[in-house]
Amino acid sequence: MVSRKTLIFWFFSVIFAGLLPYLISLYNLHISIYVLQNIIIAVSWNIVAMTGQMSFGTAGFFGIGAYTATFMWELFKFPTILNIFLGGFLAAVASLIFGLICLRMRGIYFAVTTLGLTEALRVTLIMVHAISFRPLGTSVPVMFGGLKQYAYYFILIIGLASIITEFKIMKSKMFYAFTSIRTDEDGATMIGVNPTRYKIIAFVISSFFIGIAGGFYPFYRGYIEPAAVFDVSISIVGIIMPLFGGLYTALGPIIGAIVLTILSEKLRFFLTANQLIYGLILVIAILFMPKGIVGSINSLREKYPFLFPKAM
């Protein structure tokens, strides 16, 4: 059962998130939208990571979502929100096919193939534009006539949906299957868990949300080009934020996304430093706190209980 305290915490968090557009400047609202986008990516990546698989292809599915939405608008002039959901849907279908091919293998094969997928898609889209003599970038109308508040509420709803999905998974029987596959795949098979099946389920759910975040991208910015959506830094974001906040935990990716997105936005004045900091965080986190912020707080609490009042 969900405790009363947790319910109250979430109730106030959602109220706060709902009132946010009325409290902050337009620039900070833009950052908040960016934070929510990264929360979706981080939470989705974490769902796959729970099965012990490491995706380096977040940008690939983000891009599939973004380009599906763009092409749907160009070809059929569907309403914006339908385009965005079709982006998520196609990303899910793509991940199903892709997962059937490479999720039978373990660890490194999946990591490398997902990295390759992103690069191949980026190159393919650039080449398709080049061969058909289209300009590389595409303009689309900005959603809700450019009203950032509505865009914020839209991505907030998607973000909440991804968080609720993650929590539902962690409360369900599926989570035990995921954990058993991650800790001992052979053992999991022995007790009747089908690893490939659960890996694919996790991968498809995760890609669906990433695809929606991708579909949102062009309609929020009004412009899209292959290098921007098939950008490896989107995959890096997906990896670093959950790791920083706490892998396999429910709150970790959310905390990681909020802290790191705001940090990197405020550090924008030296661009290359951004990547340097991400790299350093990865190395330091793995060496000194492999359990992330949430995990470190938990082990601190075990070691020094007097530091933490009972109420927490």
């Binding site: 490491m54 340097l276 790299g279 965080i281 990865l282 793995i286």
Partner: peptide, 10 residues
């Protein structure tokens, strides 16, 4: 993998 990936970013 994450460590060596971080190293490559650095």
């Amino acid at each position: 993998i994450l460590l060596t990936f971080g190293l490559s970013l650095v």
